[in-house]
Amino acid sequence: MIYEWFKNITFAWPENFILLGFIPFLTFWYLRRHARSQAAMTVSTTRFLNVRSARNRMVHWPFILRMLAVACIIVALARPQHRNDYEKTEGEGIDIMLCMDVSGSMGDPDIPPSRIEAAKAVAEEFVTNRPVDRIGLVIFSGESFTKCPITPDHNTLITQIRSLELRDGGYLAQGTLIGEGLATAVDRISSSPSKSRVIILLTDGKEDAPDTRLIDPLTALEIAKAKQVKVYTIGMGLGASSAEDIGGGPRASDDFLDEGLLQKIATETGGRFFRARDKDGLSTIYALIDKLEKSKVEIIRYKKIEDKFHLLILGALAFLLLEMVLRTTILKKFP
Protein backbone atom coordinates (compact mmCIF):
# COMPACT_ATOMS: atom_id res chain seq x y z
CA MET A 1 0.00 0.00 0.00
CA ILE A 2 2.86 2.39 0.85
CA TYR A 3 4.55 1.56 -2.46
CA GLU A 4 1.34 2.34 -4.39
CA TRP A 5 1.10 5.69 -2.58
CA PHE A 6 4.70 6.67 -3.35
CA LYS A 7 4.35 5.50 -6.96
CA ASN A 8 1.97 8.40 -7.62
CA ILE A 9 4.11 11.02 -5.87
CA THR A 10 5.78 13.67 -8.02
CA PHE A 11 7.78 16.77 -7.08
CA ALA A 12 6.95 20.23 -8.42
CA TRP A 13 10.35 21.71 -7.50
CA PRO A 14 12.85 18.80 -7.59
CA GLU A 15 15.79 21.20 -7.94
CA ASN A 16 15.54 21.86 -4.21
CA PHE A 17 16.89 18.37 -3.55
CA ILE A 18 20.36 19.86 -4.14
CA LEU A 19 20.09 21.27 -0.61
CA LEU A 20 20.43 17.72 0.73
CA GLY A 21 24.09 18.01 -0.22
CA PHE A 22 24.64 20.24 2.85
CA ILE A 23 23.82 17.40 5.25
CA PRO A 24 27.15 15.53 4.74
CA PHE A 25 29.06 18.81 5.34
CA LEU A 26 27.06 19.54 8.50
CA THR A 27 27.71 16.00 9.70
CA PHE A 28 31.47 16.37 9.11
CA TRP A 29 31.50 19.74 10.88
CA TYR A 30 29.56 18.30 13.85
CA LEU A 31 31.84 15.28 14.29
CA ARG A 32 34.95 17.43 14.07
CA ARG A 33 33.59 19.94 16.58
CA HIS A 34 32.49 17.12 18.91
CA ALA A 35 35.97 15.58 18.88
CA ARG A 36 37.60 18.93 19.72
CA SER A 37 35.20 19.60 22.57
CA GLN A 38 36.18 16.47 24.49
CA ALA A 39 38.29 17.11 27.63
CA ALA A 40 41.75 15.50 27.72
CA MET A 41 43.88 14.31 30.63
CA THR A 42 46.67 11.81 31.18
CA VAL A 43 45.75 8.59 33.00
CA SER A 44 47.48 5.23 33.47
CA THR A 45 44.42 3.28 32.23
CA THR A 46 41.08 3.99 30.54
CA ARG A 47 39.37 0.85 31.77
CA PHE A 48 37.24 2.74 34.26
CA LEU A 49 36.09 5.11 31.46
CA ASN A 50 34.62 2.32 29.30
CA VAL A 51 31.27 2.42 31.03
CA ARG A 52 28.42 2.66 28.48
CA SER A 53 25.34 4.32 29.95
CA ALA A 54 22.06 5.17 28.21
CA ARG A 55 23.11 8.82 28.28
CA ASN A 56 26.40 8.07 26.53
CA ARG A 57 24.63 6.07 23.82
CA MET A 58 22.22 8.94 23.13
CA VAL A 59 24.79 11.71 22.97
CA HIS A 60 24.47 12.07 19.18
CA TRP A 61 20.69 11.74 19.04
CA PRO A 62 19.94 15.48 19.14
CA PHE A 63 22.13 16.05 16.08
CA ILE A 64 20.59 13.08 14.25
CA LEU A 65 17.08 14.36 15.00
CA ARG A 66 18.02 17.83 13.81
CA MET A 67 19.39 16.42 10.51
CA LEU A 68 16.20 14.43 10.04
CA ALA A 69 14.21 17.62 10.57
CA VAL A 70 16.39 19.43 8.00
CA ALA A 71 15.91 16.56 5.51
CA CYS A 72 12.13 16.71 5.98
CA ILE A 73 12.12 20.45 5.38
CA ILE A 74 14.22 20.10 2.21
CA VAL A 75 11.95 17.37 0.83
CA ALA A 76 8.95 19.57 1.70
CA LEU A 77 10.59 22.43 -0.24
CA ALA A 78 10.67 20.11 -3.29
CA ARG A 79 6.86 20.20 -2.99
CA PRO A 80 5.74 16.57 -3.13
CA GLN A 81 2.38 16.07 -4.80
CA HIS A 82 0.03 13.12 -5.09
CA ARG A 83 -1.27 12.92 -8.65
CA ASN A 84 -4.32 11.07 -9.91
CA ASP A 85 -4.89 10.91 -13.67
CA TYR A 86 -8.03 9.43 -15.15
CA GLU A 87 -9.89 9.83 -18.38
CA LYS A 88 -13.45 9.66 -19.58
CA THR A 89 -14.29 8.56 -23.10
CA GLU A 90 -17.29 10.08 -24.80
CA GLY A 91 -18.42 10.14 -28.38
CA GLU A 92 -20.80 9.00 -31.05
CA GLY A 93 -20.15 5.35 -31.78
CA ILE A 94 -21.57 2.91 -34.30
CA ASP A 95 -23.36 -0.38 -33.74
CA ILE A 96 -21.45 -3.51 -34.69
CA MET A 97 -22.57 -7.13 -34.60
CA LEU A 98 -19.92 -9.84 -34.70
CA CYS A 99 -21.29 -12.90 -36.48
CA MET A 100 -18.91 -15.83 -35.90
CA ASP A 101 -18.89 -19.37 -37.24
CA VAL A 102 -18.44 -21.92 -34.42
CA SER A 103 -18.91 -25.08 -36.50
CA GLY A 104 -16.67 -28.08 -35.92
CA SER A 105 -14.22 -27.10 -38.68
CA MET A 106 -13.29 -23.99 -36.68
CA GLY A 107 -11.26 -26.32 -34.47
CA ASP A 108 -8.82 -26.93 -37.35
CA PRO A 109 -5.23 -26.12 -36.20
CA ASP A 110 -4.06 -24.76 -39.58
CA ILE A 111 -4.17 -21.32 -37.87
CA PRO A 112 -2.50 -22.07 -34.50
CA PRO A 113 -3.63 -22.91 -31.93
CA SER A 114 -6.92 -23.31 -33.81
CA ARG A 115 -9.11 -21.20 -36.03
CA ILE A 116 -11.63 -20.49 -33.28
CA GLU A 117 -8.99 -19.53 -30.69
CA ALA A 118 -7.31 -17.14 -33.16
CA ALA A 119 -10.70 -15.64 -34.05
CA LYS A 120 -11.56 -15.16 -30.37
CA ALA A 121 -8.26 -13.42 -29.57
CA VAL A 122 -8.51 -11.00 -32.50
CA ALA A 123 -12.20 -10.27 -31.85
CA GLU A 124 -11.42 -9.42 -28.23
CA GLU A 125 -8.71 -7.00 -29.31
CA PHE A 126 -11.08 -5.38 -31.81
CA VAL A 127 -13.73 -4.84 -29.11
CA THR A 128 -11.17 -3.35 -26.73
CA ASN A 129 -10.04 -0.84 -29.37
CA ARG A 130 -13.57 0.55 -29.92
CA PRO A 131 -14.55 2.01 -26.52
CA VAL A 132 -17.61 4.04 -27.55
CA ASP A 133 -19.28 1.53 -29.88
CA ARG A 134 -22.14 -0.77 -28.99
CA ILE A 135 -21.17 -4.30 -30.03
CA GLY A 136 -22.93 -7.66 -29.90
CA LEU A 137 -22.19 -11.28 -30.81
CA VAL A 138 -24.13 -13.85 -32.84
CA ILE A 139 -22.76 -17.36 -33.36
CA PHE A 140 -23.81 -20.02 -35.82
CA SER A 141 -23.13 -23.56 -36.94
CA GLY A 142 -26.17 -25.74 -37.81
CA GLU A 143 -28.23 -23.16 -35.89
CA SER A 144 -27.76 -19.50 -35.02
CA PHE A 145 -27.81 -18.00 -31.55
CA THR A 146 -27.42 -14.55 -30.02
CA LYS A 147 -24.55 -15.00 -27.58
CA CYS A 148 -24.57 -11.36 -26.49
CA PRO A 149 -27.13 -8.68 -27.46
CA ILE A 150 -25.71 -5.44 -28.75
CA THR A 151 -24.38 -3.59 -25.72
CA PRO A 152 -22.00 -0.85 -24.56
CA ASP A 153 -20.82 -3.20 -21.80
CA HIS A 154 -17.61 -4.47 -23.40
CA ASN A 155 -16.52 -6.43 -20.34
CA THR A 156 -19.58 -8.65 -20.61
CA LEU A 157 -19.06 -9.07 -24.35
CA ILE A 158 -15.39 -10.00 -23.93
CA THR A 159 -16.38 -12.59 -21.32
CA GLN A 160 -18.77 -14.14 -23.85
CA ILE A 161 -16.12 -14.12 -26.59
CA ARG A 162 -13.62 -15.85 -24.32
CA SER A 163 -16.18 -18.54 -23.44
CA LEU A 164 -16.85 -19.55 -27.06
CA GLU A 165 -16.49 -23.23 -27.88
CA LEU A 166 -17.12 -25.29 -31.00
CA ARG A 167 -20.89 -25.50 -31.59
CA ASP A 168 -21.22 -23.54 -28.32
CA GLY A 169 -20.08 -26.53 -26.30
CA GLY A 170 -22.18 -28.97 -28.35
CA TYR A 171 -25.52 -27.20 -27.80
CA LEU A 172 -25.85 -26.13 -31.45
CA ALA A 173 -26.56 -28.56 -34.27
CA GLN A 174 -23.87 -29.54 -36.76
CA GLY A 175 -23.59 -27.67 -40.03
CA THR A 176 -22.83 -24.18 -41.32
CA LEU A 177 -25.86 -21.95 -41.73
CA ILE A 178 -24.36 -18.69 -43.01
CA GLY A 179 -27.79 -17.41 -44.04
CA GLU A 180 -29.41 -17.91 -40.66
CA GLY A 181 -26.36 -16.51 -38.86
CA LEU A 182 -26.51 -13.38 -41.02
CA ALA A 183 -30.29 -13.06 -40.67
CA THR A 184 -30.08 -13.32 -36.89
CA ALA A 185 -27.34 -10.68 -36.78
CA VAL A 186 -29.38 -8.33 -39.02
CA ASP A 187 -32.46 -8.85 -36.83
CA ARG A 188 -30.53 -7.99 -33.66
CA ILE A 189 -28.93 -4.85 -35.10
CA SER A 190 -31.74 -3.50 -37.33
CA SER A 191 -33.73 -2.09 -34.40
CA SER A 192 -30.77 0.06 -33.41
CA PRO A 193 -31.28 3.85 -33.73
CA SER A 194 -27.64 4.29 -34.77
CA LYS A 195 -27.01 5.86 -38.17
CA SER A 196 -24.25 3.36 -38.89
CA ARG A 197 -24.82 -0.38 -38.45
CA VAL A 198 -22.20 -2.95 -39.36
CA ILE A 199 -21.96 -6.74 -39.29
CA ILE A 200 -18.63 -8.58 -39.40
CA LEU A 201 -19.35 -12.11 -40.57
CA LEU A 202 -16.54 -14.64 -40.13
CA THR A 203 -16.72 -18.21 -41.45
CA ASP A 204 -14.43 -21.00 -42.57
CA GLY A 205 -16.97 -23.00 -44.60
CA LYS A 206 -19.73 -23.15 -47.16
CA GLU A 207 -23.44 -23.10 -46.48
CA ASP A 208 -24.16 -26.60 -45.17
CA ALA A 209 -27.86 -26.61 -44.56
CA PRO A 210 -30.07 -29.31 -43.03
CA ASP A 211 -33.69 -29.75 -44.09
CA THR A 212 -34.77 -27.59 -41.17
CA ARG A 213 -33.13 -24.44 -42.61
CA LEU A 214 -35.42 -21.41 -42.45
CA ILE A 215 -33.46 -18.70 -44.27
CA ASP A 216 -30.99 -19.18 -47.10
CA PRO A 217 -27.98 -16.82 -47.55
CA LEU A 218 -29.47 -14.88 -50.48
CA THR A 219 -32.67 -14.19 -48.55
CA ALA A 220 -30.56 -13.03 -45.59
CA LEU A 221 -28.65 -10.77 -47.99
CA GLU A 222 -31.86 -9.15 -49.19
CA ILE A 223 -32.92 -8.56 -45.58
CA ALA A 224 -29.58 -6.89 -44.82
CA LYS A 225 -29.92 -4.65 -47.90
CA ALA A 226 -33.48 -3.72 -46.95
CA LYS A 227 -32.37 -2.81 -43.43
CA GLN A 228 -29.37 -0.86 -44.80
CA VAL A 229 -26.87 -2.91 -42.81
CA LYS A 230 -23.30 -3.03 -44.10
CA VAL A 231 -21.66 -6.47 -43.98
CA TYR A 232 -17.93 -7.22 -43.97
CA THR A 233 -17.23 -10.89 -44.68
CA ILE A 234 -14.10 -12.82 -43.72
CA GLY A 235 -13.18 -16.23 -45.10
CA MET A 236 -10.85 -17.94 -42.63
CA GLY A 237 -8.38 -20.76 -43.34
CA LEU A 238 -5.53 -21.61 -45.68
CA GLY A 239 -6.06 -21.43 -49.42
CA ALA A 240 -5.50 -19.36 -52.55
CA SER A 241 -7.97 -16.58 -53.18
CA SER A 242 -8.92 -13.76 -55.51
CA ALA A 243 -10.15 -11.68 -52.58
CA GLU A 244 -8.09 -9.30 -50.44
CA ASP A 245 -5.88 -12.16 -49.32
CA ILE A 246 -4.09 -11.29 -46.08
CA GLY A 247 -1.64 -13.59 -44.33
CA GLY A 248 1.59 -15.43 -44.97
CA GLY A 249 0.68 -19.10 -44.62
CA PRO A 250 0.88 -21.71 -47.41
CA ARG A 251 -2.02 -21.82 -49.85
CA ALA A 252 -4.18 -24.89 -50.26
CA SER A 253 -7.47 -25.67 -51.96
CA ASP A 254 -10.34 -23.23 -51.41
CA ASP A 255 -13.09 -25.81 -51.89
CA PHE A 256 -14.19 -25.38 -48.27
CA LEU A 257 -15.24 -21.75 -48.85
CA ASP A 258 -17.96 -20.22 -51.01
CA GLU A 259 -16.04 -17.09 -51.94
CA GLY A 260 -18.62 -16.07 -54.48
CA LEU A 261 -21.32 -15.93 -51.82
CA LEU A 262 -19.17 -14.04 -49.31
CA GLN A 263 -18.07 -11.59 -52.01
CA LYS A 264 -21.69 -11.02 -53.07
CA ILE A 265 -22.89 -10.41 -49.51
CA ALA A 266 -20.12 -7.88 -48.87
CA THR A 267 -20.33 -6.04 -52.19
CA GLU A 268 -24.10 -5.67 -52.30
CA THR A 269 -24.30 -4.30 -48.75
CA GLY A 270 -21.43 -1.82 -49.17
CA GLY A 271 -18.83 -3.84 -47.26
CA ARG A 272 -15.74 -5.78 -48.34
CA PHE A 273 -14.68 -9.41 -48.48
CA PHE A 274 -11.35 -10.51 -46.98
CA ARG A 275 -9.42 -13.76 -46.75
CA ALA A 276 -7.40 -14.52 -43.62
CA ARG A 277 -4.79 -17.29 -43.82
CA ASP A 278 -3.19 -16.78 -40.39
CA LYS A 279 -3.77 -14.95 -37.13
CA ASP A 280 -1.68 -11.93 -38.17
CA GLY A 281 -3.72 -11.67 -41.35
CA LEU A 282 -6.93 -11.79 -39.35
CA SER A 283 -5.62 -9.02 -37.04
CA THR A 284 -4.79 -6.92 -40.11
CA ILE A 285 -8.31 -7.39 -41.47
CA TYR A 286 -9.93 -6.26 -38.22
CA ALA A 287 -7.54 -3.29 -38.14
CA LEU A 288 -8.62 -2.34 -41.68
CA ILE A 289 -12.28 -2.57 -40.71
CA ASP A 290 -11.48 -0.49 -37.62
CA LYS A 291 -10.10 2.24 -39.90
CA LEU A 292 -12.98 2.03 -42.36
CA GLU A 293 -15.67 2.32 -39.69
CA LYS A 294 -14.73 5.42 -37.73
CA SER A 295 -16.44 6.55 -34.55
CA LYS A 296 -16.41 10.07 -33.16
CA VAL A 297 -14.42 9.67 -29.97
CA GLU A 298 -13.67 12.40 -27.44
CA ILE A 299 -11.33 11.56 -24.61
CA ILE A 300 -11.56 13.91 -21.63
CA ARG A 301 -8.55 13.66 -19.32
CA TYR A 302 -8.75 14.73 -15.69
CA LYS A 303 -5.78 15.47 -13.48
CA LYS A 304 -6.09 15.90 -9.73
CA ILE A 305 -3.03 17.09 -7.77
CA GLU A 306 -2.80 17.29 -3.97
CA ASP A 307 0.16 18.82 -2.13
CA LYS A 308 1.63 16.41 0.42
CA PHE A 309 4.32 18.57 2.11
CA HIS A 310 2.22 19.04 5.24
CA LEU A 311 3.18 15.67 6.71
CA LEU A 312 6.86 16.43 6.15
CA ILE A 313 6.57 19.75 8.00
CA LEU A 314 4.81 18.00 10.87
CA GLY A 315 7.57 15.37 10.85
CA ALA A 316 10.26 18.07 11.02
CA LEU A 317 8.51 19.75 13.96
CA ALA A 318 8.22 16.38 15.71
CA PHE A 319 11.96 15.71 15.31
CA LEU A 320 12.82 19.19 16.62
CA LEU A 321 10.47 18.78 19.57
CA LEU A 322 12.02 15.41 20.42
CA GLU A 323 15.50 16.96 20.21
CA MET A 324 14.43 19.71 22.61
CA VAL A 325 12.99 17.16 25.04
CA LEU A 326 16.24 15.15 25.02
CA ARG A 327 18.39 18.23 25.53
CA THR A 328 16.31 19.39 28.49
CA THR A 329 15.93 16.01 30.18
CA ILE A 330 18.22 13.03 29.66
CA LEU A 331 21.01 14.96 27.91
CA LYS A 332 20.73 18.15 29.93
CA LYS A 333 24.15 19.69 30.67
CA PHE A 334 24.89 21.17 34.05
CA PRO A 335 27.34 24.09 34.35
Results as ranks from 00 to 15, higher is better:
223 I>K: 14
223 I>T: 06
223 I>C: 00
223 I>Q: 05
224 A>K: 07
224 A>Q: 04
224 A>V: 05
224 A>L: 03
225 K>D: 09
225 K>V: 06
226 A>M: 05
226 A>D: 13
226 A>F: 02
226 A>R: 12
227 K>Y: 01
227 K>H: 04
228 Q>A: 14
228 Q>L: 11
230 K>M: 11
230 K>A: 09
230 K>F: 08
231 V>I: 15
231 V>E: 01
231 V>Q: 06
232 Y>G: 10
232 Y>K: 12
233 T>S: 04
233 T>G: 02
234 I>T: 03
234 I>G: 02
234 I>A: 08
235 G>H: 11
235 G>T: 12
235 G>L: 12
235 G>S: 15
236 M>S: 11
236 M>G: 07
236 M>H: 10
237 G>W: 01
237 G>I: 13
237 G>C: 14
237 G>N: 02
237 G>A: 11
238 L>P: 02
238 L>V: 14
238 L>R: 13
238 L>Y: 07
239 G>S: 06
239 G>T: 05
241 S>K: 09
241 S>T: 14
241 S>A: 04
242 S>Q: 10
242 S>P: 00
242 S>F: 05
243 A>V: 03
243 A>K: 05
243 A>H: 02
243 A>D: 07
244 E>P: 00
244 E>F: 03
244 E>V: 09
245 D>Q: 11
245 D>R: 13
246 I>F: 10
246 I>C: 03
246 I>L: 15
247 G>A: 10
247 G>D: 10
247 G>F: 06
248 G>C: 01
248 G>A: 09
249 G>W: 09
249 G>A: 15
250 P>L: 14
250 P>Q: 07
250 P>K: 07
250 P>T: 05
251 R>H: 13
251 R>C: 12
251 R>D: 15
251 R>W: 08
251 R>K: 15
252 A>K: 10
253 S>I: 08
254 D>N: 15
254 D>G: 10
254 D>P: 10
254 D>V: 03
254 D>H: 06
254 D>A: 13
254 D>T: 06
254 D>I: 03
254 D>Y: 02
255 D>A: 14
255 D>N: 11
256 F>Y: 11
256 F>L: 12
256 F>V: 12
256 F>S: 13
257 L>W: 00
257 L>S: 04
258 D>Y: 04
258 D>H: 05
259 E>Q: 07
259 E>Y: 02
259 E>A: 00
259 E>H: 02
259 E>R: 02
261 L>T: 08
261 L>F: 03
262 L>K: 07
262 L>W: 04
262 L>V: 08
262 L>E: 01
